[in-house]
Design a protein around this nucleic acid. Structure first.
Lengths: 266, 266
DNA sequence: GCCCGGCGGTTTACGCCGTAAACGACCCGA
DNA sequence: TCGGGTCGTTTACGGCGTAAACCGCCGGGC
């Protein structure tokens, strides 16, 4: 049972990631380095070998080139990581059909927030090993909250909510609650994916000693362990998201009714 | 606006951290290495210089000793990091008065969840640079979700909710929603702290060019920028936490009324 | 008193890291 | 023909984690 959503239907945010033609195996690449090609190779590399394995030397090798060659297109490792994050998060916009994020495109702010959330989740699930980078790289401005990292997205978020009748305070509070929700849920979800695969490719040692930790001192854990091991990420994401939207809607309506008081959400 | 700390009273989770006597400056320490002393020094070091600055050599130097001396007490760097996390999270139990976490101690599951949340938040705020480690270190079992990392805490969590009438499914779902909430909120809060200090000690360059990014293309951002820069972390934490508890309470009561159906929260 | 084993810390060494700097090869317009 | 630019390589340096050899010292058995 891999990463099933509810018990038997598919997770709409889990899209098959097709191998870029002849990208995986050989260290050769016809010719012509280029910042864009480097970033693409870096993302592929992290997807395949994990974040910790990414070094300038190895990334160079994966492009059939010495490490120092990369420095002609990338100022240094830190900037490379920033570029990776930027590249991955930018796929929010070419997702789906054109740009789903434009205000005129969607039907209401709830629809907008749901599209945005699933867009970010799709990115996280497509690149589980890259997502911790999206979560932890220092943001451009101190009030930019991962995983909503680009000013363009934050602007679109605040603009949409404003237009829908949210006060500035309420919109900002919504932005904060929304980003906390996304970060917490998705970071835990991709971590769990990573933990599972790193368990799978470590079947060494005698198969008996590989037994899970002794839970005999923890009766509740022992009893609920099968439940804890079930993956309900997709359903829980949906549930939490809808709950957040309900809460925002309550704030919005309260502000409209008693409109002397500012619906502040905090 | 219920229990939230409003604009001007103190944050109860922000406790003053007193300097350990003569710990900050000199690299000297009387004598006698010891795993516990090493871990303490490591936490102090990270608090002072940041996570990235921690190396075996420098940690050794901060104890007046060569790097290799540490290896007599710590198998390696990875294990050191695990030890740091364990040491920091264990202070959950000696917080407050004895162990606040025992089931008999508190009055109801809501009170328990609030104490637990504020306990974790206190840890995060006391060691902002360590918390990302708490959040990202691979957990002991795949279903252990940071920042609630110890089996003891998870057991206590599930036991408390079970005893309060939650079904096993509902308790597990609550555990997941709760850990997502804590992780998302606290990680963003400590990140913001780190960003602010790292901005403060970088006042170099000519003071004019240090101007913040140009926001003229982003009208909503431009308008709400002062609001975005306001720190309302404590109040928002409280608000989100209370909302989560309300949601859990709803689940619990629905399950009790129509008790053929399982309140599943997801 | 002497010796000697092991405890606790140091020295040395190895391979990998990020990256500065010098160095070619190759191409193309004057 | 040539001289400069572009693009990648080579070489080198300091710092990293850590394996292995080394050594001073101290306490107990003879």
């Amino acid at each position: 049972m891999p990463t099933a959503t509810s018990d038997d239907d598919r997770d709409p945010d889990l899209v098959a990631v097709q191998e870029s033609p002849a990208a995986a195996g050989g260290p050769t690449r016809p010719t012509g380095l280029d910042r864009e090609r480097i970033l693409r190779a870096a993302v592929d590399f992290i997807d395949e070998h994990g974040l910790a394995a990414l070094t300038m030397r190895r990334l160079g090798a994966s492009l059939g080139v010495e490490a120092m060659a990369l420095y002609r297109y990338v100022p240094g490792r830190e900037d490379l990581l920033d570029g990776i994050v930027e590249r991955v998060t930018e796929t929010l916009f070419d997702d789906e059909d054109g740009d789903e994020l434009h205000i005129e495109q969607h039907t209401g702010w709830q629809d907008y927030l749901m599209r945005l959330a699933h867009g970010v989740r799709r990115i996280a699930l497509a690149h589980p090993s890259v997502f911790p980078l999206v979560a932890s790289r220092p943001p451009a401005a101190p009030w930019v909250r991962p995983p909503l990292r680009s000013l363009r997205v934050v602007e679109s978020f605040l603009g949409t909510l404003s237009e829908a009748g949210f006060s500035d305070q309420a919109a900002v509070a919504a932005y904060r609650a929304y980003s906390s929700f996304l970060l917490g849920h998705l970071l835990l979800e991709v971590t769990q994916i990573g933990a599972q695969v790193s368990l799978l490719d470590q079947p060494e040692g005698d198969p008996e000693a590989q037994r899970t930790t002794d839970l005999s001192e923890y009766p509740s854990l022992l009893r609920t362990e099968p439940l804890l091991s079930l993956d309900k990420s997709a359903a829980e994401f949906e549930e939490s998201l809808e709950n957040l939207l309900d809460r925002l809607e309550r704030v919005l309506h309260e502000a409209k009714n008693s409109d002397g008081e500012v619906g502040d959400l905090a």
